[in-house]
Design a protein around this nucleic acid. Structure first.
Lengths: 142, 142
DNA sequence: GATAATCACTTGCGAGTCGCAAGTTATATT
DNA sequence: AATATAACTTGCGACTCGCAAGTGATTATC
C-alpha cells in the first residue's frame, strides 16, 4: 500500500489511505460491530493475519484507533476507536446504504433503511455507542 | 481485483467493488469533474492506462457508467454516468469531507464546506449537473 | 507445576495486481 | 500520402495479497 499522496484532491487523498479492501472493514468492526481484539476483528471476512497487523498499525499511526492491554488477560490487546475514528461513521453508513442497494445479500438491511429514513439520528446514536466503548476501555494500559 | 463477495455485510460487499485506489477516482472524474474521455480521466493522478481500461470496463459492467462513440470524432469514446452512477454522489462527498479534514492539501475546500453546511442541497445540485451531462450525450452511438 | 491451549503476531512463498514504458490499431488532420 | 492523436494492449519488474506454518508470551487445565 502506497502512502504518498497522488494529488491534492481530497477524494484521491482519502483513497490513498482508505482505498483498499480491508481498512474500512477493520474500522467497521472496531467502530460499529464493536469487536475489539485481534482474533475477532475481520474474522467474518477471513482477513489474513499479516494484513490485519498491517491495517491495525496504519490505523493506529493515523490515530483512528488506539491499542490497549486488556487488564483481565495479558495476552489480549484491545483496539478502541478515537474521535478521529468516529468521524468515519458517515462514510461507513454510505457504504452500508450503497451496498444494501447494489450488492447481493442484504444483511444489515434494517440499518440501511434507518440511515435512509433519518441519517443524522443514526449517526448520533452510533457516535454515542462508540464513545461508550471508548470510555469503557479508558482505564487500560497500553 | 477479486470480485467474489466475502460476506453478506454491505460494507464488505461495497468494498469488494469500490475498495481500491482507482475506481472512485474514475467515478469522480466522470461524475463530478465531468471529464468524459479516456485521455482525460484520471490524468490528474496519472493512472496507468491498463488500470484505467480495467476500471472503465468494471464500471460499465456494473452499469455505473456507459460508453458512447463521440459523433464528432470517431477515435474518441465518451464515458457518461448512469442513474446508478449518480447514487455514488453521497459516498464521493463523504470522501471529500473526510479528505478535507484529515489529509494534507485542501483543494475543493469550498465543496467540503458546502457539504458540511447543506449536504442535501449539494447532492441535489450535483445530481442535476450529472443528469445534464447524461442528456448531452444521449444521442450518441456506442 | 508441568502441559496444553490461546492470543497476537511474524515469516515464507506462490499468485495476483500495479506502475511504467513501449507497442498497435483506427481515425483525423495537414 | 504522411503525420498525429485517441484508445487501448502487451510485457515486465516490483510490490501486495492470501494462505499456511511458525514464534513467544500469557493463561487455563490436569
Amino acid at each position: 500500500m502506497n502512502t504518498t499522496a497522488r494529488s491534492d484532491c481530497p477524494i484521491a487523498s482519502s483513497l490513498d489511505f482508505l482505498g483498499d479492501r480491508w481498512t474500512l472493514v477493520v474500522v467497521r468492526d472496531v467502530l460499529l460491530v464493536q469487536l475489539h481484539s485481534f482474533s475477532e476483528i475481520g474474522r467474518g471476512e477471513r482477513i489474513a493475519t499479516n494484513v490485519l497487523t498491517d491495517r491495525l498499525e496504519r490505523l493506529i499511526a493515523a490515530k483512528i484507533i488506539e491499542r490497549r492491554k486488556d487488564p483481565r488477560d495479558g495476552r489480549r490487546r484491545i483496539y478502541v476507536p478515537t474521535e478521529r475514528g468516529i468521524d468515519l461513521i458517515p462514510l461507513l453508513l454510505e457504504l452500508v446504504v450503497w451496498g444494501d442497494t447494489y450488492t447481493p445479500g442484504r444483511s444489515q438491511a434494517e440499518l440501511a433503511k434507518a440511515v435512509r429514513r433519518d441519517r443524522e439520528a443514526v449517526i448520533a446514536q452510533l457516535e454515542v455507542r462508540a464513545r461508550k466503548a471508548i470510555a469503557e476501555h479508558d482505564e487500560e494500559a497500553d
